[in-house]
Nucleic acid binder design. Structure first.
Lengths: 214, 214
DNA sequence: GAATTAATTGAACGTTCGTTTTATTAAAGA
DNA sequence: TCTTTAATAAAACGAACGTTCAATTAATTC
């Protein structure tokens, strides 16, 4: 056998990415073999090497693109000139919406850092740090304005990120809470956490919800 | 060669546990081979099978004992009759202290659930749920008393656990913050998160700090 | 319709995996 | 001291791993 009828490089590559994110999120990078991945895609293992030179390069591609898309997503909704509490609201809501939408890819990006080589790990961490700096700046601005009560913006940023990223561990679609409801609750908890004195409703731009629900 | 001079079963088993927690935390369960583990211990791979029948049983033992010790640790410091805000303080401080002291084992327990068989996974999740229920009850009690402002105790418990467990991702000893300082900061953030109105200082039993610093 | 390119198969490579078996030596007990 | 038991080494097992290569066929181009 050789080339199959209806075969298409673009479709195959997309199928590989999707299957890889799914399998790696579920079983872990090391536990998933190239043969298992190929079977999920519906091809032989050798066919994967037409699209990705090594297994690790495939992992790296998934993680890098996920992080780039996360940053792009934030840049597209960030209310730059707005007060800190509104920017924080937008950050939390975008983060939760993005991560719930891409649970598999997020799981991979969060869990498989140790499977990357030094240089590739550095590249991913650079992206992650850039993203986290956005939150730190919001917290610092809010603390400076007196909107927030924060002694340690770096530690608080860590705590918030871990809290709002943790949603993917337990959230399952079609359960008691919708994405918007979950985002609402985390938004409220975040505002309390940073000691914001204003009402949450005022800060809710609903930009994310409108776009995603659209 | 065969039995080596000075060899001792108890010491070897302890060395295997320590090396396994260290290596698995760093590289992941699937990525660590029995030969690699044996080399770290200073024995041949076959010797490991005198102490653990399979690789997975070794992983399971590490995770189960870690969870049991976590629960025992909480039971030893839990101020049962105390008001909710003091119990919450004790919970957060014990959790952070315990997890920082056992970063490797915690990492394993949090990251390697997917490498367990069905039955073993169930056993670990049962322990984890039992622990989380303690926190949920504290939140419910506090909400009932009016000490806390919480609409969704289950979701809030998840958020708090993820936040305070996340400390092991970034915390390194010998850096700018001590364990007690980190616990202080997380305690304060948690109290804000649950909408506690009282001052944090009153709720701080310092039991954990005294025991560990002793 | 012939030539070229794109996409894939099937078989094979050497390596490493978890695990088992057997033999061997140190320590403990009589 | 002799016997027994505890602890380990050394070698080997079949299976699975990531990856490569040559052959083969579908789609595209001329």
């Amino acid at each position: 056998m050789a080339r199959t009828t209806g075969s298409d490089g673009e479709k195959t590559e997309a199928a590989i990415r999707a299957a890889a994110a799914d399998l790696i999120a579920r079983y872990g990078y090391e536990a998933v073999s190239m043969r298992q991945l190929a079977m999920q895609v519906g091809v032989q293992a050798a066919a994967l090497y037409r699209y990705f030179p090594t297994k690790e390069e495939l992992l790296f591609t998934l993680m890098r693109e996920h992080m780039e898309e996360l940053i792009a997503s934030w840049e597209s909704v960030a209310p730059c000139g707005a007060p800190a509490r509104r920017r924080l609201a937008a950050f939390v809501r975008n983060h939760i919406g993005f991560h719930i939408e891409r649970r598999h890819a997020t799981h991979v990006s969060n869990m498989e850092l140790r499977s990357l080589s030094r240089e590739r790990l550095t590249a991913i961490l650079r992206l992650r740090t850039a993203y986290e700096k956005e939150l730190r700046q919001i917290l610092r601005d809010g603390a400076g304005d007196g909107e927030f009560q924060i002694e340690d913006p770096v530690l608080t940023a860590m705590a918030i990120i871990q809290m709002i990223t943790g949603v993917i561990v337990w959230f399952r679609p079609d359960e008691r809470l919708s994405v918007v409801e979950v985002a609402d609750k985390y938004h409220l908890m975040t505002m309390r956490l940073v000691g914001a004195r204003t009402h949450v409703e005022e800060d809710n731009v609903h930009a994310f919800d409108e776009v995603r629900a659209g």
